Simulated assay, not measured.
Amino acid sequence: MNWRIRKYSWQLVPGTIKDIRQQVFINEQKVPPALEWDSTDEIADHYLMVLTDNTPIGVARVFSTLGDVAHIGRMAILPGFRGQGFGQQLLRHLMSETGQEFPELRLSAQEHAVPFYQASGFHLCSDAYDDAGIPHFDMRCYAPELVLARLDDHPRPMISGEDSTSWLFDDEQSLIQLMDSIVGQARQRVWLYDRFLEHDLYDRSRFRELLSGLARHHRASEVRILIHDDKPLIKRRHRLVELTRRLPSHMAIRLVNDELPLEDQPFLLADRDGVVYRHEFDGPGGFAGFAHGGRVKLLEDAFQRMWDGGRESLELRQLPL
């Protein structure tokens, strides 16, 4: 069946949008009306999916409260159209439209809908919580454009432990999106090896927040950073160094021992499955894997060997916070 999607501001939404939300959320799912109709409606864009004869199918809304984050919500498909792929098409339309402007998409998913969103590249980023009496999880996607370009080849794209394919990249933007997607799913460790901590890659607010969240919210977590040169960190204040010094029980930076065998390519490891591997220190080209346990094990052994032979930077330790 052919369909189309229309976009409205709250002031101009047709009654059909409100009727669908009333039927699905309030009547069917027993969400209290006071929770369903909130002030966010006034700042959101509202979407109505219809057949070519204007038969309504479903709705959704998108809003942004932060400069680089869009929130998808209130997605609902009428009962007679469920299980036919309309929800997936609606979600991917939202990803296509908002992903060009916002590098991060977020949503709150009901527990039963988590696999549905994972099929479009959204990963879990919270524990379960109650919303209107229904278990929910926060989910996010850091690479909507990359996901949309390769959905046909990836049943659960960029989901840690499940997506066993390799994601090739040759530009810094794709590298950053893939790196954040992998680090954002880590629950135990992130090990990073590079020549130095390039500011454009590693001194970004999102990257710091991801490492800080791992270190603060997971008791047994560890972040290890292994570099060749600490002079750029001393010359230009690097906020990742500050974070490491504030969380010394979970985060550490070491310098490699140049007299011992060293790896020729930089890489990042997340837990037992995630890897971002670059072909050279000075270029963005390489690949990322979300379920590459074998390669992670090989690089893990190499990293551990270099880490054991490395040393702490006295200069970084003496820098004032």
Rank of each mutant, 00 (worst) to 15 (best):
W3P: 00
Q11K: 15
Q11I: 12
G15T: 14
K18V: 11
K18Q: 13
Q22E: 09
I26K: 01
Q29G: 06
K30D: 06
V31I: 14
P33D: 11
S39H: 06
D45V: 07
D45Y: 11
Y47Q: 06
T52W: 07
T55Y: 01
D68Q: 13
G73A: 04
L78D: 06
G85A: 02
L90H: 00
S96G: 12
E101T: 15
E104Q: 14
A109D: 00
Y117R: 02
Y129R: 06
D131F: 07
A132L: 09
I134Y: 01
P135Y: 02
E145D: 08
L146Y: 08
L148R: 03
A149V: 03
P157A: 12
S160F: 02
S160T: 01
E162I: 13
S164Q: 09
Q177W: 06
W191V: 01
L192H: 04
Y193Q: 00
R195T: 02
D200R: 15
L210N: 01
L211S: 03
R216H: 03
A220Q: 14
L226Q: 10
V256H: 04
P266Y: 05
Y277N: 00
H279L: 15
A291R: 07
V296T: 11
D301C: 05
D308T: 13
G310I: 10
S313T: 02
L321E: 14
